Simulated scan of single mutants.
Amino acid sequence: MHKYVKQVSLDFEEAERKFKDAIEKVGLKVVGEVMPSKKVKMKLNIDVPPYKILFICHPKYVYELMKMNKDIGALVPCHAFIYSDGEKACCIGVELPTKTLSFAGEEVVEYIKTAEEQLKQAVDMVAS
């Protein structure tokens, strides 16, 4: 499995707010975001439930990863997502960097385990 996902009984805005707060509490930062559901509406005029992708990192992790593998920029930051199931529930999740970075070598995988645990902890904080 390359992702860690939990369903929460929150509306989209509340799930997003709580997830962003949890990301900060575990020591990571949201450094960017994109909302594909708005792009679909704008470009195709199709309504879809809210869907947001968050880009998450910590400068120390990126610095250490760059020292290990100069091409790591193609794979960072980590990705998280929030989407509405169309009801009054949402799913929040994160990619598992130990899986997505596995081909970069064992040193990278070992190093990124801490960040992966932080990402999963942020999901669990909202889902509990």
Rank of each mutant, 00 (worst) to 15 (best):
L96Q: 08
D11I: 05
I53C: 00
K41A: 09
A127M: 15
L44M: 15
D21F: 11
L54W: 05
K18E: 14
T98H: 01
V8E: 12
V26R: 00
G73C: 02
P50T: 02
K43L: 15
H58K: 15
Y111V: 01
I56A: 01
I112K: 01
M42F: 12
V31K: 03
C57W: 14
E106H: 05
D47Q: 10
E117P: 12
V31R: 00
C90Y: 04
V48E: 12
C57P: 04
A15M: 01
L96F: 08
Q7T: 08
I82W: 01
V76G: 04
Y111W: 03
H2W: 04
C57H: 09
V34D: 04
V62G: 05
Y51M: 08
R17I: 07
S128K: 15
L28V: 00
E117C: 06
D71E: 11
E24S: 06
Y61R: 08
H2Y: 08
K29Y: 11
G27Q: 09
K67A: 09
F103W: 11
V62F: 13
T114C: 02
E110C: 01
E13F: 10
I112E: 06
L101Y: 09
R17H: 12
H58P: 08
H79I: 07
L96S: 11
H2I: 06
L65S: 05
Y61V: 11
L54G: 02
L54Q: 03
L96V: 03
C78K: 09
Y83S: 09
K39H: 07
K18R: 15
P50W: 04
F103N: 14
A80S: 15
I23E: 05
T98A: 11
V62S: 13
P49V: 04
E16F: 05
S37W: 08
F55L: 13
R17T: 10
K43A: 09
E13V: 13
Y83L: 11
L10I: 07
K70S: 10
N45Q: 07
I56R: 03
V48M: 14
P50N: 03
Y61N: 10
V108D: 12
L119N: 02
F19G: 07
V62Q: 01
V26M: 04
K25T: 02
A22E: 13
I112R: 05
M68I: 15
V109S: 09
M66V: 11
S9E: 13
